[in-house]
Computed example of a mutant assay.
Amino acid sequence: MVTINDIAKKAKVSKSTVSKVINNYKGVGDDTKEKVLKIMKENNYWPNSVARSLSTKKSHTIGIFGPQILNNFFFREVFEGIENIMGDKGYDLLYFTNKQWDESWVDYSYKEKCENRNVDGVIMMGYGKVNIAQFDRLLNSEIPSVFVDLDLVGSNTSYITSDNTGGARKAVEYLYNLGHKKIAMIRGLNGFKVATDRFVGFQQAVKALNLPYNSKWMFDGDYSMETGYQSMKEILRLEEKPTAIFAEDLIAIGAIKAIREADLSVPEDFSVIGFDSIEIGRHYHLTTIAQDQIGLGQAASKLLLNIINQKSFSPIILPTRLIEGETCKEI
């Protein structure tokens, strides 16, 4: 097995010079750097990641926390954006799956998990503001961290989200321009920033357009088709029904299912508009307010790299856009 000493001997340079080339440090001439890299390539040599982390104090590994990310239509695409940027920058991704530490006798937190795996930074996805104290140790540590859709900040922490408030206003305004005045909202889980922001935007638009607000048209639930299905069944039992439904894409698909089961049609009987533009929604030709999921992942990665490299950073809010499908109709 070829070692760093072998490369130094073949290149007729010191071991420290080879180390500088490997870690892209300054102080090595272009000719020398080129020669060392050529010999490394000829001998198929690359340093052991553990040894490299000991010398550079960096593991070139980014941790990712998130409940059920890989089974989530939305975060699956965010993850793709993270891979795009971090992979190009030479980082591996470590997806934390071990849930046993929640029940361990050890006083463990996200901070200790990151330290135990020696990650250079961490991206947190899919968390709400319930039990927000669980992040205190991480926020007070020196570990660079970026939250997706949770507005936490610190000396080494920032966040990224989409303009959920503006996007919700956009959805209501679109329905209003189609003639809808009675609009229901199935808003997702309480305690989550995206659900709160979208409800704020919904209320702003309803007030600005002087539309009727009916608490019986407002529903909460998790981000699932079942939530949309059950909520829509309740709407169908109402004496005074809305003419349009606004919900996150997966919830909206559940609502469409309930409408069709009642021998009614979308958009002839009800217009339905979603939020997110996830892949499954495209198969339903769902009109929706689109987020750039891949762009979220890419921007989260760039933000984290700025923190890691001690560059200036601040929270990022990405724009949304309307995608017209076939689930809304003028009345």
Rank of each mutant, 00 (worst) to 15 (best):
E268V: 00
A133T: 13
E103Q: 09
S141T: 03
L37F: 02
Q293E: 04
K113G: 15
N177G: 08
R260I: 09
V148Y: 12
L152R: 13
M86R: 06
W101T: 12
I22A: 09
K329L: 12
Q230C: 13
V153A: 14
N71Q: 11
Q230I: 12
S224G: 02
G121P: 12
D31K: 14
L54G: 02
R137E: 15
A258H: 06
P47W: 06
A51T: 02
D276M: 07
K233Q: 14
K12N: 15
I294Q: 12
E42D: 14
K35P: 11
V36N: 09
N309I: 05
F275I: 00
G228T: 05
W101C: 09
Y229P: 04
I253N: 01
S158C: 01
K26C: 03
Q204I: 13
K302Y: 13
Y159I: 08
P319E: 04
H283K: 10
T97L: 14
N156P: 07
N23M: 09
D276Q: 03
I278G: 00
L70F: 14
Y229N: 05
F270A: 05
E261H: 05
I69L: 15
L54P: 07
G191D: 07
V122E: 06
C114T: 08
R321I: 04
D120K: 08
R169E: 12
Y110I: 00
M232I: 05
E77Y: 11
N214C: 05
Y213D: 13
E142H: 04
K41H: 10
K99I: 12
K58P: 10
V146Q: 10
G295K: 03
K9I: 08
S271Q: 03
G295L: 02
A208S: 15
E234S: 14
R76V: 11
Y108F: 13
M1S: 14
V266D: 04
G121V: 01
D136R: 00
F96C: 09
V194W: 02
K311I: 00
Q204E: 15
